[in-house]
Amino acid sequence: MDKIKFEIEFPIHASPSMLYQYFATPSGLEEWFADRVNSRGKVISFFWDDSEEEATIITRRNEEKARYKWLESEDDESYFEFRIQVDEITKDVSLIITDFAEEDEVEESKMLWENQIDTLKHRIGA
Rank of each mutant, 00 (worst) to 15 (best):
T56F: 12
V43N: 10
E105R: 13
L29F: 03
I97V: 05
W48L: 09
F47T: 08
A14G: 07
I89K: 14
E31N: 13
A24C: 11
D49T: 13
E30L: 00
G125P: 01
D76R: 03
P11A: 06
E74Y: 13
V37D: 01
T56V: 14
L29E: 00
E81N: 11
Y79R: 08
Y22E: 07
E52P: 06
G41K: 06
A14L: 05
E102I: 08
S109N: 13
E31M: 09
T25H: 01
I44E: 09
T98E: 03
E108Q: 10
E102P: 07
I124M: 01
A126Q: 05
V37S: 03
V37Y: 02
T98V: 05
I58W: 03
E54F: 03
D118S: 15
K91D: 13
D35F: 05
G28L: 01
S51G: 09
K121M: 09
W32M: 00
D50K: 14
E77R: 12
T98N: 03
H13N: 15
M1C: 09
D35E: 12
Q21S: 13
Q85D: 13
G41I: 06
N38S: 10
N62G: 10
K3E: 07
I96F: 02
T59M: 12
K121L: 05
S109V: 09
E52Y: 07
I84V: 08
I89T: 14
R40P: 06
Q116W: 09
A24P: 06
T119L: 11
L19P: 00
S27L: 13
I57V: 15
N38T: 11
M18W: 08
D104P: 06
L19N: 01
A14R: 08
S15A: 14
E30V: 05
S39E: 15
V86G: 03
E74G: 12
P16V: 07
R67T: 15
Q21T: 14
T59W: 05
F6E: 05
I57P: 06
K121Y: 04
S78E: 04
E72K: 14
E105P: 06
E9R: 12
E72S: 15
K42Y: 10
I97D: 00
S39Y: 08
